[in-house]
Design a binder for these strands. Sequence first.
DNA 1: TGTTATT
Length: 467
Amino acid sequence: YRYLTERERGREREGETRVGAMNGLSLGQNTIPMKDHDAIKLFIGQIPRNLEEKDLKPLFEEFGKIYELTVLKDRFTGMHKGCAFLTYCARESALKAQSALHEQKTLPGMNRPIQVKPADSEGRGEDRKLFVGMLGKQQSEDDVRRLFESFGQIEECTILRGPDGASKGCAFVKFSSHAEAQAAINTLHGGQTMPGASSSLVVKFADTDKERTLRRMHQMAGQLGIFSPMTIQFGAYGAYTHAQMMQQQAALMAATQGSYLNPMAAIAAAQMQHMAAFNVNGLVAAPMTPSSGTSTPPGISAAAVPSIATPLGVNGFSALPPQSNGQPASEPIYTNGIHPYPGKEEPTPLQLAYFNRLLSKHSFPQQPAIIPQQQREGPEGCNLFIYHLPQEFGDAELMQMFLPFGNVISAKVFVDRATNQSKCFGFVSFDNPSSAQAAIQAMNGFQIGMKRLKVQLKRPKDANRPY
DNA sequence: TGTTATT
């Protein structure tokens, strides 16, 4: 059975394939076969490939009336897979067959004894298996066994490893009973933190097939940059999974929509207080419509809004110095990505422009539905590190804040896992360096309440910390 | 200064 592919095992659980089922054949033609409510579906392994249902039937009928006997065959080639599923009408028959046959005799031409045991689809099979996360990378199978052995009989213990053999910091542990597994969860989950791990031990039941499929889909969607559920519906996945995706997305969208307004309003309010002290060319609080990125508020000449009117602007912003339009610059603009905080309390023209956009409730272009992304780094020069974020900012708010500068391929606020509180820093990645530079120009030093945003290029992985 | 990983 261990040679079955994962697809076949999944098919077994879904009950999709029934080849040569004997349902209704073994009994009188007018009789609907009945089985016990708690009947056990058995997996039969190590069957010679020349034996079909009719050949196997006599062997197993010895232990009771057969409800269904199905030889597993390749879905496409129809080839005999050397194994079968067997359900007796009576639960007792299955138990008898198992104890009499399992590993007890070897069928002709086979070099291993026949396997007779409850199929994985019979519940109880997989609810004894635990996923263990947040292990130390150097912990061995034996280390993990020692950790779990006091809770019961361990049937299997596997550390997940990459191609190079390095531990992924997680493992599967299979107990002989559900109760043992549950006891291990109760005691170990969230307990000690292993050396080198970033959080306390995770002990939970392993994913079911459906959960695994969903997770893989999400990963794939993230990697391919698929944003809409419609993109997926013609893919290689089943309808039920698609329906689940839709539900999840709807929930996510609702959550995102509901949460992003308040923090943004908070920023706008903070900025408004701050800005009330200034009046630059009458621009303060003058709304700008996004659909016409170069428009000016009533009564304001276009020349008074240089940074907005620049043709090279991205979504109304420009990485070019505002003085290029003949307007006095309130401060120098730096293009090396390391922009000192503005030395005075006055916002830069770019910040002003941004503020104006913030104040307009239509300021942000409508984005397509977005699946939360895997944290993706963009190319060199496209990734920003942002510090001093407002406490209430999440990924969605961070993304909203940087969308005006270009295509945000990832926005991630770091969260303390223990408290679920933002660590007030995060990452934003664009798909091109110009957008990243425009964001730095506009947002570095951007004042929110008593803090100023720090917006820099993300430090490369190999960079030495000078301090 | 990209955190948690599902044979």
